[in-house]
Design a binder for these strands. Sequence first.
DNA 1: ATGTTC
Length: 473
Amino acid sequence: MDLTQLRQLQPYLWSFPLRPGEKRAEVLLYGTAPLLASMDDKVLEQIGNVASLPGLAGAAMTMPDAHWGYGFPIGGVAAFDAEQGGVISAGGVGFDISCGIRCLRSNLDLHDATPGLTALADILFRAIPAGVGEEGDIKLNPAQLDQVLQDGAHWAVRQGYGNTADLEYIEERGRVAGAIPDNVSELAKKRQRGEMGTLGSGNHYLEVQVVERIHDEDAASAFGLHEGQIIISIHCGSRGLGHQIGTDYLIMLAKAASRLGLPNRELACAPIKSPEGRQYIGAMNAAINCALANRQILTHLTRIACAKAYPHAELETLFDVSHNTCKVETHEINGKDRLLHVHRKGATRAFGPGHAMLPERYRAVGQPVVIGGSMGTGSYILAGASGNQAFASSSHGAGRAMSRNKASARWQGRELISKLAQQGILIRSRSMRGVAEEAPSAYKDVDLVAEATEQAGLARRVAFLRPKVCIKG
DNA sequence: ATGTTC
């Protein structure tokens, strides 16, 4: 991205000034000069397009890990006011609806766990269905799937996957309101009937990590984290169902958008108050519940696998964040509280200290936020910051720096795996091409993303996690 | 991300 097009407002905040004759809302970009310089110009074009959509509240924004996506950039945040003609966009949520990360803290430490890590890697690889189209042992009939879409992780706990203590630490406490299973196509449901409790592919993973560094002792203590502790993180979403909803509604919303005079098919959207808009929102909420249930089942499978390698192991849910959603929230703009539909695409909600929606245990320090790193580099746990000006949003990952095609042309999966093994990181995957696409060097530097996220006032770093075992799709 | 062509 050419930085001469931008105006630097603060050390970690930039604006994209209007060109003569251009009509759109403000665009704000969070990040350092090097991070922004490494982004594709497409990011700027895309967030500029978002700023021209009807009913936008405040500015359209990008997070420090932004890269270009379908319609909206990944790492994009945009809030719309239904009362002012605001819109809902499928491309503003993302195709993998409610993709997110479940973090589990363990009672194991690296020193004791090390001798069993190879066995754990093999057990997890057998226990966790992963890869494109991969199905699990759970097969649901249509009525059962509708219950999943209605009740999310609560459904999973009722079936014996995990426990009620998990629910307290899931965003929305395990279930969003407003899901309408009838708005989800039969094809989308059919694709999901065998895919509950599966990881998927691409950047999805299950990682066994060690807490290598604590940045904030108070928050770490509230989150139950200490140096040397083993953590397990599960990154996945709503699988075939979410993807099919994205496909179905892209077509419907594109028609609605053409009536609004928006020519760009990728910006497919409809007013929140329109029939099409309401219909998509009902389907999207159903997909959010599907993803929450999916991560709950995977948590259960992970506990069983972990107990085989370490009979005394206990895994508690630290938190479960979603980073592809649109959620209705109240935010203050110019001193006035407004009810907004906040699109976060590749962006994590990051409520600050004192927010009423947070579980009591974390309320004083802020919401746990996860910046998932690339395979082999590491991840950060952060806490939502007071005074976040980005509709309580934060970065979600390292963010790609290179396309999948380029990465798979440059690296060999097998070589990467042996190189990472030398660094003490065990990779298990059925797809060598997938591993090559996920090469650590195809991503931005997660340390720089986390540092910029903190310096920009979006979230505070709490702990750095180093991967030890990584199960890839 | 994805029954890898939205």
